[in-house]
């Protein structure tokens, strides 16, 4: 796992230096959120906050994850990585982890935006909210990281990543939205238990599947 840590460290150094992913992601989320607000009755928008939260997150997140792989293709650095004597699973773990970190930070900003713009009661139970967000984030990052390794190689990559990931994400979106709804309306984590269990299962299945199948996607 030390190889995974080194790749993750390299990715975070690159992100800190360019701040491309995070800044782009935050602005994109703001724009999607504003578009939602304009498309809805602003007064009643608070009820839609859980749905708006996850739709915004998923679409902005897909863009950011795609970009993470494009970064590796400049100068063919990706091939340099493949030449290193490390397990391909470690590359997946590193890429997924850096996506989780960047998207996690973006999620915190999204929470602030939801509170300010839609009046969502995110702060009612901050710890529970973070827990729900984290479960949704991990499963999303696992699937999107796996399929971004595919789409980055395709000509129609901007279109293919959402096509590949969105249908598979349906269970995650359903459960994340419902769990968010429970927490935002003041319910306890226990009352969102069923949703959280599906989310956790989703996270485990696709993290392991991604780790195991990544090798299949990087060989040429």
């Amino acid at each position: 796992m030390s190889a995974a840590w080194r790749i993750l460290h390299k990715d975070l150094v690159l992100e800190l230096r360019t701040r491309e992913a995070l800044s782009g992601l935050v602005v994109l989320m703001l724009l999607v959120l504003l578009t939602f607000t304009f498309a809805m009755d602003p007064e009643g928008a608070g009820n839609a906050a859980p749905a708006v939260q996850w739709v915004t997150f998923v679409f902005a997140g897909l863009m950011a994850i795609q970009r993470g792989f494009l970064l590796e293709r400049e100068n063919g650095a990706w091939y340099g990585l493949l030449l290193c004597p490390v397990d391909r699973g470690a590359i997946f773990v590193a890429k997924m982890a850096s996506n989780v970190i960047v998207l996690g930070l973006a999620q915190l900003v999204l929470m602030v935006l939801l509170t300010v713009l839609l009046g969502a009661s995110v702060l009612a139970a901050p710890a529970a909210m973070i827990f729900v967000n984290f479960l949704g984030l991990v499963g999303f990052a696992a699937l999107a990281t796996l399929f971004a390794a595919i789409s980055v190689r395709l000509r129609a990559r901007e279109m293919m990543l959402p096509l590949l990931v969105l249908p598979l994400l349906v269970p995650l979106v359903i459960c994340a939205v419902e769990a968010s709804r429970v927490v935002m309306s003041g319910g306890s984590l226990a009352s969102a238990g069923a949703w959280l269990r599906v989310l956790a299962t989703f996270d485990v299945i696709f993290s392991v599947a991604g780790w195991m199948m990544f090798e299949q996607l990087v060989q040429e």
Binding site: K10, L14, R17, E74, N75, G76, A77, Y79, C84, P85
Partner: peptide, 17 residues
């Protein structure tokens, strides 16, 4: 892989590092 070194057309270097 540990015993092989490759210099290709592309430099395999990260531009921002």
């Amino acid at each position: 892989r540990r015993r092989v070194g490759l210099v290709a057309h592309q430099s395999f270097l990260y531009p921002d590092l």
